[in-house]
Design a protein around this nucleic acid. Structure first.
Lengths: 247, 247
DNA sequence: GAGTGGTCTAGACCACGAG
DNA sequence: TCGTGGTCTAGACCACTCA
């Protein structure tokens, strides 16, 4: 295959990674200062910092400005269950989840009209969720509901604690379809700040659009999950009556 | 929210981004050399390079060592259709896809035994796919099939051109379940080299496990898709006969 | 060989956090 | 205030691409 030239940065990152995995540096511990590490490895500070940046991108190290570099505690994995696979979401979202919610009314703009299939500038209810597990941020969600739907429902439109894996309880026109689109990217600065991650740690970005039986979009949810601890799981069981392809 | 301090890096990146989006720098064009850009923005080369690194991570710019920085041509989006939603995959994978395949026989190791539910060191057929669309790499797939299954099937186990969205044609024990797990991360150096992307461009990593009616794992596929042009789409339609939760 | 990006240095100065 | 990380400089030297 390809033989990447071993750079000092990679060598240092490998060494630190190894020391972390063998418990030489323990979880939660503060690493020696960058100046000390630079001396130890006989490199300049920028070089050492770029090695640390690799570990940050892997979620192994958290930098705290003015304080130090810390070995991250192993984080509980987040699993987003897609589709309708899991009626019980409680296993995935232990009760310790603390969710901050902010609801506002906005006008549909940029990509939202197309997403929700509503005219531009039509009223939408925006629900912003930030979930924390203990002290560490967990996930970020923006949920949009057409304005006229929220007038019949109570304001926040959806129960909150299970904010991500929300299932609609008792919709008036029955739901017909859930479409989930996932992509991988680096977070925006705002997202990185809210999730307390680096902008160099990838996030799983998920857009979920729920449509009711009349073909109307009932809800659009934009989720951002930190890539070092989250994944999304989709389970498809084939019906016993075989689907004929090209129906 | 948060007021990120405007750094020179960000300012330069914003400016270049703007010049690219307004067509001042056109697709495929080579940017001025880093030295020239550094002079123009009156910054040092490391600073300028860190600005370019941001654009690389967004897939806007491709660096070619010894040649220059190039504005990337807008790439055709890749959509991976999850589940069994799309019987016709041809729309997603135009015929221009050229797939390189390498088939080897290996012994199950590390995470593979658990994934395929086979004993460690049992024989597996590994199929490595690299898909190209024109000259640009497109996707990377490693497919594992238990060794005793490949003896009845013809060697590559699966038709190749639609390598990613392969559907099994005529399985002896009928298939029962497809489980797809997605995560976002940065690519390994090998993956980045194969896909010709930076290690700072996030990838969508997908693990698909197919099980037949006897509960046996028939195939495990590990897919890596570049985050700047790929997403995965899952569509779940509710059966007309309503599912009762907690079945 | 000329020109490009890749890596690295040895500092300087600023911004933040804790005592 | 002190020690930490954050940003940046001005240049050196190497590796690669192309003619």
């Amino acid at each position: 295959m390809i033989r990447p030239v071993p750079s000092r940065r990679d060598a240092i990152a490998d060494d630190l990674r190894h020391q972390i995995s063998t418990g030489h540096f323990k979880a939660g511990e503060r690493l020696p200062s960058e100046a000390q590490l630079a001396t130890r490895y006989t490199v300049s500070t920028p070089t050492l910092r770029s090695a640390l940046a690799l570990l940050q991108g892997e979620g192994l190290v958290e930098k705290i400005h003015g304080n130090g570099n810390f070995v991250r505690r192993p984080l509980r994995r987040i699993t987003y269950f897609g589709g309708l696979a899991e009626p019980t979401t409680s296993t995935a979202f232990p009760a310790q989840l603390r969710v901050t919610t902010r609801t506002t009314t906005i006008e549909a703009h940029s990509h939202l009209p197309a997403l929700l299939n509503v005219p531009p500038r039509s009223p939408l209810t925006e629900v912003l969720h930030i979930a924390h597990e203990g002290k560490t941020p967990h996930s970020l969600a923006r949920i949009y509901v057409p304005g006229d739907l929220t007038q019949t429902d109570p304001p926040p439109a959806r129960p909150s604690p299970e904010q991500i894996a929300v299932r609609v309880a008792d919709p008036r026109p029955p739901l017909a379809e859930v479409q989930e689109r996932l992509s991988a990217r680096l977070p925006t600065q705002e997202e990185a700040a809210a999730l307390r991650i680096t902008t160099s740690l990838a996030v799983l970005s998920l857009t979920r659009v729920t449509t009711d039986a009349t073909g109307r979009v009932v809800e659009a949810a934009l989720l951002v999950l930190p890539g070092d601890r989250a994944d999304a799981l989709f389970t498809t069981r084939l019906n016993t009556e075989e689907r004929t392809p090209k129906a």
